[in-house]
Design a protein around this nucleic acid. Structure first.
Length: 453
RNA sequence: UCCAGAGUAGCUCAAUGGUAGAGCAGCCGGCUGUUAACCGGCGGGUUACAGGUUCGAGCCCUGUCUCUGGAGCCA
């Protein structure tokens, strides 16, 4: 029976007989014996294997090169040298799949840019091993957070004919050839269809049946944005809560981000060490900061006041009706409050049609959650549950009510105050790992002009 | 999409308009406990692509592509 390396390097005692399978990271030869470093992806640490002339298969040791897959039989013993607690003394080593000298990964560090060009192999490196183990664990933590609070997980459709207004350009999907707009009725679905940009509207229908729901799945934006924070395909988490207003929404969002930071520190400390060492020395401090410091909540108009009185010379002007820029958000959280900040009640004209109009008739119950070093990590709102206000707002944003008939129906049949928010999963990972490019926290990134692998 | 920068060996980078080089990796040899092992040797290039200026271009000019940083949009 094969044992994963993470159980061996964390063992409490020697083990007489073990089988290890994995990939060679490096080999160091001396006269008559060799050290192999083997990794199977189960943890960051390599297992050191000391083979010598008594080991069956040692005559082929020169073929055990970096990148080769191996199967090793032997005993786990305490290592006499510094650097590792345990090492494997093999009775037999078997080469499963050789890797010739063209194998691109070396023992030395590579640039992230180069590693992106070999995305199918970069995952065998320490850093990307840590990143994608973290991605898996945090995905679990997301589910655990919501399931522990009785939220129902909903799989909203990937293919959609509706447009979550304001969310961005959509990818058209079609089986038609030639001019696809000539006769859309002849298309597979009998109408133009797209890849989803958000599961929110469908999520709201489920919240109006199950009370608390969340989505967690892929979304697609056809925006030609070429930045370290955007990807055409990314994963989004969208909780939706019935019988809830903007305050309950902000409570949940703040609790969520704190819990993710706490989970990272408590359950992923080995990988976090790599991020601290090679990616961002401040990442652990920033996580602690978000866990320990209370969130400050301020209204949009109050944020404008603070920015205007800051004495700072911002590149973009601070005025009512404009979105807060990255520089504004970072000033609020990093310099003024030195604390995570939630900004809420934004002007109606800069927010989408489904957000709830406040009593002042000018602002809507929208909120953005800002953290130091990153800026916005969560955006959400209380939804407009009043039928007449919603219809008016559809008109205000120049949309066609017939396209949203089922969404509007929710306000006709047992309407209820409800609210929710959206978290970009990759941006959450960037916050938790300190990795600064979204292309490095998603297995095979899709960006304008790039859909390799 | 806009602004700025970059593209030279497998990787990371040098090279005043005048003979394209180093370190690492790889390969060969040495070394009785290595840890990005160490020591000696060897091979490795259409300087992103296309054109132009020049006696002569990796270097200057034009275009294209790609990447990076920043911005907008946003998650």
């Amino acid at each position: 029976m094969r044992t994963l390396i993470k159980y061996l390097v964390n063992s409490n005692s020697p083990i007489e007989s073990v089988v290890v399978k994995g990939w060679v990271r490096t080999r160091r030869d001396s006269k008559g014996f060799s050290f192999l470093e083997v990794n199977d992806g189960s943890c960051l640490t390599n297992l050191q294997v000391m083979a010598d002339a008594n080991t069956v298969g040692y005559k082929d040791i020169s073929r055990f090169t970096t990148g080769a897959s191996v199967e090793i039989y032997g005993s786990l013993v305490e290592s006499p040298a510094k650097g590792q607690k345990w090492e494997l003394h093999p009775t037999e080593i078997k080469l499963i799949g050789p890797a010739d000298s063209s194998y691109p990964l070396q023992k030395k560090g590579h640039s992230l840019e180069f590693l992106r060009t070999i995305a199918h192999l970069r995952i065998r490196s320490n850093l990307f091993g840590a990143i994608f183990r973290t991605r898996s664990k945090i995905a679990y933590a997301v589910h655990k957070f919501f399931q522990d609070r009785d939220f129902v997980y909903v799989h909203t459709p990937i293919i959609t004919a509706s447009d979550c207004e304001g969310a961005g350009e959509m990818f058209r999907i079609t089986t038609l050839k030639g001019n696809i707009d000539e006769n859309p009725q002849a298309d597979f679905f009998g109408k133009p269809t797209y890849l989803t940009v958000s599961g929110q509207l469908e999520g709201e229908t489920f919240a109006c049946a199950f009370s608390n729901i969340y989505t967690f799945g892929p979304t697609f934006r056809a925006e030609n944005s070429n930045t370290a924070r955007h990807s055409a395909e990314f994963w989004m988490i969208e909780p939706e809560i019935a019988f809830c207003d903007i305050n309950g929404d902000m409570n949940l969002a703040e609790e969520f981000i704190k819990e993710m930071a706490r989970y990272m520190i408590q359950n992923n400390s080995d990988d976090l060490q790599i991020f601290e060492k090679f990616v961002d020395k401040q990442v652990r401090d920033r996580l602690k900061f978000v866990i320990e410091r209370p969130f400050v909540r301020i209204q949009y108009v109050k944020a404008l006041e603070i920015l205007k009185n800051s004495g700072k010379n911002f590149e973009f002007p601070v005025e009512y009706g404009a979105n807060l820029q990255a520089e504004h958000e970072r000033y609020l959280t990093e310099e003024h409050f030195k604390s995570p900040v939630t900004v809420y009640n934004y002007p109606r004209e800069i927010k989408p049609f489904y957000m709830r109009l406040n009593e002042d008739g000018k602002t809507v119950a929208a909120m953005d959650l800002l953290v130091p070093g990153i800026g916005e990590v969560i955006g959400g709102s209380q939804r407009e549950e009043r039928l007449d206000y919603l219809l008016e707002n559809v008109k205000y944003h120049k949309l066609s009510p017939e396209n949203y008939w089922w969404y509007i129906d929710l306000r006709k049949y047992g309407t209820v105050p409800h609210a929710g928010f959206g978290v970009g999963f990759e941006r959450l990972l960037m916050f938790l790992t300190g990795v600064s490019n979204i292309r490095d926290v998603i297995p095979y990134p899709r960006t304008p002009g790039n859909a390799d692998f």
